[in-house]
Design a binder for these strands. Structure first.
Lengths: 165, 165
DNA sequence: CCATATACTTGTACGCTACAACTATTGTGG
DNA sequence: CCACAATAGTTGTAGCGTACAAGTATATGG
């Protein structure tokens, strides 16, 4: 018989929390040793995938404020990993383009990370690898579905509130 | 036939990256609206699980420097969610204990997060829910295995290096 | 041509974390 | 018992990442 959904949710919560925490930690250690931050890395990764992208689109994609996005791009430009290009059609728009140097960097990081995942996969029995990947995809799908419907984080979804004093 | 492990690793990398990013974001929005930060929340959660814990153990468990841990605990104490207790045996040691107020807070957050996971699970077909959870557990296991063997992040595992200028 | 909207940048502030220097306590060899 | 090292934690300081508010430049509509 199927376990109760509540128990399942508890387990999912637990395992997912641990996994994300471990992963975040690995990211910080693993990526920063290339000389860039996690946000910078995601940004470069996005640029490598999508090509020149407007600041605003970039910000939306990375779940950042435009002002924060500006700073991240500043740092990428300062390091020579990206460049700003004013859009011809609409001169308010600032497209960000990855440089060759940035391209090289991000390729290196990517292949290292993929290598890392290969090692992780090898820890799993051959016939469950595909299951894990598929399961993760489903979870991501479910996650996004849930998010798109605008169901915040339950009862307390009243948005930002930093200080409680 | 089985897909190549390289291709699988690429897929795992991709889906996992997205998932973690989405999750992180949800955390930030979801937890901070209770008036605490993600680190504060993890700390309280740990304290709720493990009971009074020495500062150093807490730091190790959360992958933080002791000095950072001190600040987090400072903030928890300031909010009345935890208290410092000097150890009787070794007066250098500072144990941190969650308060009743903190206990209540963390219980509330936990049940909200579990509720959230329940919703996510409901997006999945009934008979794949268990598969997903099990798969995640396996992945976490593999991840930890890999980490415990001290295999850093591949070739560039030379530790910290923040500034490249 | 002016008012408003849009896209982005800059000013400012705050939280999180790390490293280094410091304090307090405990353990150890003589 | 004392000097000295080791351990546990705190404080000083600094940098990154992010957000909000205000400012700048461009576009759009009346």
């Amino acid at each position: 018989m199927a376990p109760s959904i509540h128990r399942q949710a508890e387990r999912l919560h637990h395992v997912f929390t641990e996994l994300v925490r471990a992963y975040q930690f690995r990211d910080r250690e693993g990526i920063t040793c290339y000389g860039l931050s996690v946000s910078q890395c995601y940004t470069l990764d996005t640029l490598a995938d999508k090509g020149p992208t407007a600041m605003g689109d970039l910000a939306r994609h990375l779940h950042l404020e435009i002002s924060s996005m500006t700073r991240v791009v500043d740092s990428l430009v300062a390091k020579g990993w990206a460049a700003r290009v004013t859009d011809d059609k609409d001169r308010r728009v600032c497209r960000v383009r990855i440089s060759r140097k940035g391209q090289t960097l991000v390729s290196g990081i990517r292949s290292d990370l993929i290598e890392e995942h290969k090692h992780i996969l090898r820890e799993l029995p051959v016939d469950s690898r595909e299951v894990v990947i598929t399961a993760m995809s489903h979870l991501l799908f479910a996650f996004n579905e849930r998010k798109q419907r605008g169901c915040g984080s339950g009862k307390s979804g009243k948005g930002r509130k930093r200080k409680v004093g």
